[in-house]
Computed example of a mutant assay.
Amino acid sequence: MDYQLKYITPDIKLSSYEDKLFKTEVVFDHHMLVWFISGETKIIQADESHVFRQGDIFLIPRNQLATIINYPKDGLPHKSVVMHLSTDRLRDFYAKLDVKPKVVSTPKIVRFGNHPLLKSCLASLIPYFDMQEEAFPENIASLKITEAISILRTLDMGIDDVLANFEEPHKIDLATFMERNFMFNMPLEKFSYLTGRSLTTFKRDFHKVFHTTPQRWLTQKRLELAHYQLSKNNRKPVEVYLETGFENLSHFSFAFKRHFGYTPTTLAEGGR
């Protein structure tokens, strides 16, 4: 994969790649402000999906499970500028303000279209990625991030409820969370963190609720979802495996046949 990732600071990066497809499943530790220069991205969450294209600007809240599928488009590489809005920077920003954020149980991705103020802020970073030897001054980076936060607050009156909320995940109902998020192929450590548990407590509570191990339950649930997508929604195996938590098509096909006794291609072609 022809992939390039350039950082001008730990919080500001430019990503670019020209391969046909790049998929990752993530939980971001920081809020992510993204501007697409070219390419296309599909972001799949438990309750909704988004497609972003050239020019789109959006904010992904931290601690949200998501499957991200990136594509080149119209002969151009998938290219984006990404700004991390870290908790430390946001604490510094909001320390000067009297803001009391409302509790948002599951913050949503926020779209800003191709707003000229945000575009101008993020586009101004492009020349700095070409600097070979000079370090990007921290004071300028700080000013740029502060500018971006100020613009976000101008465009969205409710954004403080997301950006000024510094709470860590608290202990939540494990069954409800896992039923909504099983399709994300994340380490168990991430699942345990997002449910407000240590890994040991997560495994213990999981067995009490589901009477099996997390790995076995997750595989079965993902295969059942894939079967539904193939049989009821007429999806193709190459589309389904990406959205149901499998690493690659061959592993998905092997696990599917072992569980159901026939291949996903057979099912998709109406053989079952």
Rank of each mutant, 00 (worst) to 15 (best):
M1Q: 12
M1S: 14
Q4F: 06
L5E: 09
I8M: 03
L14E: 07
S15Q: 12
F22Q: 15
V26H: 02
D29L: 02
H31G: 05
H31R: 05
M32E: 13
W35H: 14
W35V: 00
F36C: 03
F36G: 04
F36K: 12
S38L: 07
G39D: 07
G39M: 05
T41E: 14
K42M: 11
Q45C: 13
A46V: 00
D47R: 14
R53P: 01
L59T: 06
L59W: 08
R62D: 01
L65S: 04
P72D: 03
P77L: 01
P77M: 01
P77I: 00
H78Y: 11
V82N: 11
L90G: 04
D92G: 11
Y94P: 07
K96S: 14
V99H: 10
V99M: 08
P101Y: 06
K102N: 03
T106Y: 12
G113K: 04
N114I: 03
L117E: 12
L118K: 02
L118T: 09
K119V: 04
K119D: 03
S120C: 04
C121D: 03
L125K: 09
L125N: 05
I126G: 05
E133S: 15
E134K: 13
A135Y: 07
A141R: 00
K144E: 04
T146K: 15
I149A: 08
S150L: 12
L152R: 07
L152G: 07
R153Q: 11
D156L: 12
D156F: 04
G158M: 05
G158I: 04
D160S: 12
D160E: 11
D161P: 02
D161W: 06
V162M: 03
A164N: 10
F166P: 11
E167C: 10
P169Y: 11
D173Y: 04
D173P: 00
L174R: 01
L174M: 02
M183E: 09
M186C: 07
L188H: 13
L188S: 11
L188A: 10
F191A: 06
S192F: 01
Y193R: 13
T195L: 07
G196Q: 02
T200V: 11
T200M: 10
R204T: 08
F206M: 01
K208F: 04
K208R: 14
V209H: 09
V209L: 04
F210L: 01
H211D: 13
Q215G: 03
W217P: 06
L218R: 15
K221A: 14
K221N: 03
R222H: 04
L225M: 12
Q229C: 11
L230P: 03
P237D: 02
E239W: 00
E243K: 10
E243Q: 12
T244Q: 06
G245C: 06
N248C: 05
S250R: 15
S250K: 14
H251C: 09
F252H: 06
K257N: 08
H259A: 11
G261P: 05
Y262K: 10
T265P: 00
T265H: 12
G270V: 00
G271A: 09
G271K: 15
